[in-house]
Amino acid sequence: MAIDAYEILAVVFAMAILSWTFKPNPVHRIVESLYVGFNAGYLLVTNMRTAYFSGIQPLATNVILMIPLILGILMYARLSKKYAYVSNYPIAFLTAIGLAVATRSIIQADVVEQIKSTAIPLIVPTSGLETLGNIVIAISVVSSIFYFTYATEHTGAKGILAKIGIAMMMVGFGANAANILLSRSARTITMLGYIMVPSGIYVVPIMIVIIALSIYAEKKGYI
């Protein structure tokens, strides 16, 4: 049987991470540190590359790009206690741009369009289920918005409306929980795909022994 080093490496990593669910151990922590380090380096390289191609390379034809480049560099002033306040300027720019970009369409996208989608004819003559659904959605929207309204006390009829809102949200969270489970199960399939390979037959027991020994060594204070 040909030895695939990459396959073995994948089993080692997957087993190391999986061992955390049994007990945190040095092997898992080493692999985790490996990931943190590799990811940090990759993040740095990709972002600096992006900054170079978006900001520095076009500088010759677009001198005004000097401003965001200087602002980006000013962010590093945070490393100094004396000049940390200088980093507030690029942060202020980013805050302003981010806020403007996000809020200029928020009324259209998250309020007007949502109201338009809710204010539809409730009765659908051809489908009883859809009619029921339209009524439920209208009640659901009104009651869940009302639940988040704190200007008035939720007592009496208002209290009932808020309770309906919570009930509808519980239905939504239940549906969400099922979909979260789908996501996590899919990711587990990926991980199991790394372990359930031909090399796994002998690598998995070896990893179990190594992890057990590392737990023992940590307990005894050797690591």
Binding site: T95, L99, A102, T103, I106, I107, D110, V111, Q114, I115, S117, T118, L129, L132, G133, N134, V136, I137, A138, I139, S140, V141, V142, S143, S144, I145, Y147, F148, T149, G165, M168, M169, V171, G172, A175, N176
Partner: peptide, 29 residues
Amino acid sequence: WILDFPSKGAFRGMVMASAFGALAIAYRT
């Protein structure tokens, strides 16, 4: 049906409520 109606309605309410909240925070900022 659950995803299309009651769940959608609840999340729609949350989207609208959070939009109002976001506008308030944006204005304050």
